[in-house]
Design a protein around this nucleic acid. Structure first.
Lengths: 405, 405
DNA sequence: CCAGATTCTTTTCCTTCGTCAACATATTCG
DNA sequence: CGAATATGTTGACGAAGGAAAAGAATCTGG
């Protein structure tokens, strides 16, 4: 189950139709720069092989000329599985070709050693494959497993997972062997970014960032159609930007002061609320209730968090200059509590035209994380690594004029 | 004077030889992924047209097989001009194909209106073209003008230059008309980044950042072989990252507190030294002298600057995860005064593998800025914008789920 | 209702480009 | 002196996309 022989134009046309919804052939040609003939030629095998279908006429009365025919991807042509691994739970999802969920399952994780986790993933996958709701679901093409930490999707290795205490685990290979399904793995935030790039609010943008707010605060960056991984596997570590500001006296888990996470993560908000109210048993739900009921001290905690978040978002905008920043994560459920502060701080700190960056908020139910895995799996099919000629594939270290450190 | 008809492989081979010094054809093939035959075929017209030459054998005793032949670019095959525009001075440079300076000139700028500046640039260019040292210099191919602010290199327009108070000036066109030389313009820091990418410490790296320290503090980013411009023309604005920390009480020119520039720019250092010593007439040179002589209060000023800089550099490392960060700018001349602090802070704040980022320092005499212009001009020849098919050339705004602000 | 205009789509032809495979070349090793 | 080995060259071949013209389907205006 692969796309027709990967002539560049075929892939390009498919990607364009995928990310920009139903389009006419002519429109595809204009968007991609391909000639009309090339579009027809590329579309033919895709139609023959049922990857795309012809729909009716585009809406909107035309004036003259031959009416165009819309083509769209057949979402049910292929399915994917996504699994998100957390410290104590697995979230699984089965999707169609557009990474839209068809079925979801979760499973507790009672042990964190590699074998147990692989087994649990394998069981969850089995459930998803045989789920009744999946009876009529598209045939599964591949599986994407996501996990926070230093993950090398290229080699399929988890270099380091802090909360599982894993080092150098060839997870993709292990899961593939256990499930019999082709498997890719990826960092969780990057996977979410891939999902937005291909199937979400980042589709077609030259650059955008996804900021996730929750237990941790992270970011995924997409620049020029590629999700940034960082030369050493680290990128988008927005949680430890030293924004200082109010609350800078709080120590972060990373050992520094002034980190965004130390002020704006769920945990940090709970702790600060406890401190502000003197009640050491308060939960996040309590904090939200108090803030919504108008408690000044607690509102101040959220305001500080919003300020830190606004500074972080402004930092991303100033550094990368993305077209859009998508604010997401579990923490967004309570976004109303700091939206104003985020907006104000962002406007104040964004420099010049960086203010023009489009800020949008997307709720992120936890199951959505698993969708990232499916998106990464789908990406394998949709945008296979073309071994295309490039400058300096082998990176050879140049001389080091003068080192610091 | 253009490269032989731009077959992709020809450009690719030329770029590879240019950025990776003398190479054998076989090595070029391995690095680019081209077949041996394709390399030979691409090299032939380049040799015929004198863009590259064959050198001798590679050093290092080979074991067996036909000895290889090195090929290298002929630096004297083409020349470029670069001009950097500042508030009160122009710096010009004439370079060879590898953006290496052959002659430099400077000129005072007594008026800042567009006509005067264009005229001054034109005069400076004339001097460079007719300079005696340039007698045997390569024929000039094109000119690159750089200037700080919001510059759109694609359209050749200066959208906004704060210190010249320009808005929407079609500078490239004006200079081209005045000089008769094909002209491109670019933001100064981005131009410096282009220079490093093609001809400097960034050659062949998958990603790197250039941080310039001086009157202002800026950064240029190169990711995946492309210099990041930002969707709205703003990127790398590291000077206004809200790092807070010590000295956060100082107000920045941008109106915020805690900006890196408010603590670590040349101006900020002078002001803080004046404050620390109570002497309102001190200059930067005095500050440096005092610090070198061991004055504790002044050393503290530099230390604070180093701390802020370290935080900024760590922020870039955490966000982008570049392979290398090049610290440069006029301020680097006194780098010894805050090197330790920069290193310490960076190590503390860089998250996980972001610490592996290679930090190097490159002195940047002011004339070097002009070289950036030449590099941008060279880039036009060396890496012309290929109108190659791409995903969503037209960026059409998608729906906006929920706006903030 | 028909001719013309218009726009989308398809087809045909042709050029470009890079791979493949065979061959030529030049050196070291046994 | 072969044999082995690696580099560089050449020509046939095929994939891929552009150009241009033909075909298709609709609207407009007479």
């Amino acid at each position: 189950m692969e796309l027709p022989r990967q002539a560049p134009a075929v892939t390009l046309v498919f990607q364009t139709v995928l990310t920009h919804g139903p389009l006419t052939r002519a429109e595809v040609g204009r968007r991609t720069g391909l000639s009309p003939g090339a579009v027809t030629k590329a579309a033919t095998p895709l139609l023959d092989d049922d990857w795309i279908v012809e729909l009716g006429r585009p809406a909107g009365g035309r004036l003259a000329g031959r009416p165009a025919t819309l083509v769209a991807v057949r979402a049910e042509r292929a399915g994917f599985l996504g699994v998100k691994v957390t410290a104590d739970e697995l979230f699984g999802v089965r999707t169609d070709l557009t990474a839209r969920p068809i079925a979801t399952r979760r499973a507790a994780l009672d042990s964190r050693d590699v074998g147990s986790v692989v087994l649990a993933i394998s069981r969850l996958v089995q459930k998803l494959v045989t789920a009744p709701s999946a009876r009529k679901a598209p045939e599964v093409h591949s599986l994407g497993v996501t996990i926070s930490g230093d993950v090398d999707g290229h080699t399929g290795t988890v270099h380091h997972s802090p909360f599982l205490n894993w080092h150098g685990v060839p997870l993709a290979q292990l899961v593939e062997k256990a499930t019999g399904i082709p498997t890719v793995i990826e960092n969780d935030v990057r996977a979410l970014t891939v999902a937005e790039q291909w199937f979400g609010a980042g589709a077609g943008l030259s650059s955008f960032a996804v900021i996730t707010v929750g237990t941790g605060i992270g970011a995924g960056l997409s620049i020029g159609g590629r999700v940034v991984s960082g030369a050493h596997g680290v990128a988008g570590e927005v949680g430890h930007l030293p924004v200082g500001g109010d609350g800078a006296e709080r120590m972060c888990t990373c050992g520094n002061r002034g980190c965004v996470e130390a002020v704006a993560s769920t945990q940090a908000i709970v702790e600060q609320t406890r401190q502000a109210t003197g009640d050491p048993t308060l939960t996040m739900a309590d904090a939200v209730r108090l803030a919504r009921s108008g408690d000044a001290a607690v509102r101040e905690v959220f305001s500080r968090a919003g300020h830190a978040l606004g500074l972080a978002i402004a930092s991303v905008a100033n550094l990368i200059g993305p077209e859009r920043i998508i604010i997401s994560g579990e923490g967004v459920a309570t976004y109303d509590l700091f939206a104003d502060q985020v907006r104000t701080t962002f406007a104040a700190q964004a420099f010049g035209a960086a203010k023009d960056c489009d800020l949008i908020v997307r709720p992120l139910p936890f199951e959505e994380w698993a969708r990232g895995g499916a998106a990464v799996a789908a990406q394998q099919l949709v945008a296979p690594e073309t071994a295309r000629p490039q400058l300096s594939r082998r990176v050879d270290r140049a001389e080091h004029p003068e080192r610091v450190g």
